[in-house]
Design a protein around this nucleic acid. Sequence first.
DNA 1: TGACACGTACCGACTAGTTGGTACGTGTCA
DNA 2: TGACACGTACCAACTAGTCGGTACGTGTCA
Lengths: 214, 214
Amino acid sequence: MNRASASTTISPKPPTARDKLIGAAVKTVREKGFNATSVDELCREAGVTKGAFFHHFPSKTDLGIAAADAWKRHANELFGSAPFMAHEDPLDRVLGYLEFRRALLDGPVPEFTCLAGTMVQESYETLPALREACHDSIWGHALTLVDDIDAARARHGITGGWTSESLALHFQGVLQGAFILAKATNDSAVARDSADHLIRYVRMLFNLTPEKKE
Amino acid sequence: MNRASASTTISPKPPTARDKLIGAAVKTVREKGFNATSVDELCREAGVTKGAFFHHFPSKTDLGIAAADAWKRHANELFGSAPFMAHEDPLDRVLGYLEFRRALLDGPVPEFTCLAGTMVQESYETLPALREACHDSIWGHALTLVDDIDAARARHGITGGWTSESLALHFQGVLQGAFILAKATNDSAVARDSADHLIRYVRMLFNLTPEKKE
DNA sequence: TGACACGTACCGACTAGTTGGTACGTGTCA
DNA sequence: TGACACGTACCAACTAGTCGGTACGTGTCA
């Protein structure tokens, strides 16, 4: 009898023009880059008009900022609710995270690359507000790993001349680099190889056998 | 008595408009990206006119391709003649390469980043010829390391479930990722931290102590 | 209950400026 | 003299952003 009676109980609200534009930006900017994606194209992709665009966003840069923020929330939801998070040993969660990320490196290149990593290359010297949003997106995700790395070090008695934060950021760096290699070949195999090296590194840091045996 | 008689013995030929445009592209594209750099701006930076531009390059994309090629030759000359190449043990050359690259991660961000890695993000789905040139630039440099990695493995009896080529590409990937992290912060410290993790990884692969002691 | 005021979401034609690229002229040197 | 290296003037297409206007929901008060 309420306003959603005629539809299913899930997803009561239809996506607004704002939501559709953010979705279009996440998709198209990852394919073509921020500067090569025009406002008209984003509107076409989202199925909205230019008036709607500038009603919701003061400028194209502001859509980029909103998309970077949405991207961070998307990532933290995806990984925060993934199966590997159920492991009791924090080291298993850390390795589970890396293996989960490696498993994502499949299929077409534009679908597994990082929006923030793509946009920061085009903005870091020219659009400080967008650069900052990309920074927040990457760091905001990386820092979710620090507590587990810390706990894994404590549990397994690992010290070494490195910080947990630097390792969490190294994870993101290796993956960002893997995306670039994959883009250069238009093939994801090279990215998976790089992820394997990263996993091997972490196993060695924690005195496990370099190769996983099952 | 030859055509360079009137000038010093060094650098006999003045740079052509073509050379100056490639130099301008290497500098400006690394700062702002390929799409955000206009032809007019490249001409201004190089001190040449638009007529000269399109006399030497059929299109802006072709300048990008030429710049990627020049970048590869520049890199191979820089690293091929660096001091670490004199080490007798190939493992010392491999580690010397990484330490040399780590040392380069200093100063302003736009000066140590990679032209090919920057351009490939903007071209991989839209400009196949430029993507291919970026691929050649990165791979053409990475593959110069494979023989030394192979020799180092033979000398030190290292096998492991990885190929020398994948490790050489992993080096490039980690560095490309480090550039992105540095761009996101506008600071190079995070890139050096990531390079340290990479060096630690290689030392562990070859059964050295994780941290260097002198 | 219904008329009025107001706010939000959205529309699409328009503009001022920029874009990559072209056409053609000119100087220079083998 | 003619080929090459460059300069000047220009163009059509596209760019981000503007602006006057519409559609419709909501709160209020007689």
